[in-house]
Amino acid sequence: MSIVQIAALGIISVILTLTIKKENPQISILISIAAGIIIFANVVPRIEVVLDIINEISNKFETQSKYVKLVIKIIGIAYISQFASQICIDAGERAISSKIELAGKVMIMVIAAPVLLSIIELIENILP
């Protein structure tokens, strides 16, 4: 699906959302969620190609490959929490969306903590 079709799909679903927004706000939000899912489903094969390339590169440097896996995991968490929090903002629920983002940040921090430690140990070894 080329970018033109994706843009057209987005515009059409926005128009449909607006037609239904007055009588039925719930279903209009479900339309925007469905449109988001369809667009992401079309992008997934390209993301797989990029991730394979990244894994290939990281396998050359054995020590680095576990950090690259962490980065990819963090990207996944960031994407899901952003997906959910954007939907909540669309619906007008800013409080819930900021809670979801907080949870996403905490999880990312939990995953990134060991990397931080190993970098600090590296620096200690280098410094005299």
């Binding site: 699906m1 799909l9 059409i12 679903s13 449909l16 037609t19 239904i20 009588e23 039925n24 279903i27 209009s28 479900l30 339309i31 469905a34 449109a35 369809i38 489903a41 079309n42």
Partner: peptide, 18 residues
């Protein structure tokens, strides 16, 4: 996974509204 899903949901929404 194409646009027909959006059209189905919109059709149900419009039908319910009417």
């Amino acid at each position: 996974m194409d646009i027909t899903i959006v059209f189905q949901i919109a059709a149900v929404g419009i039908l319910v509204a009417v």
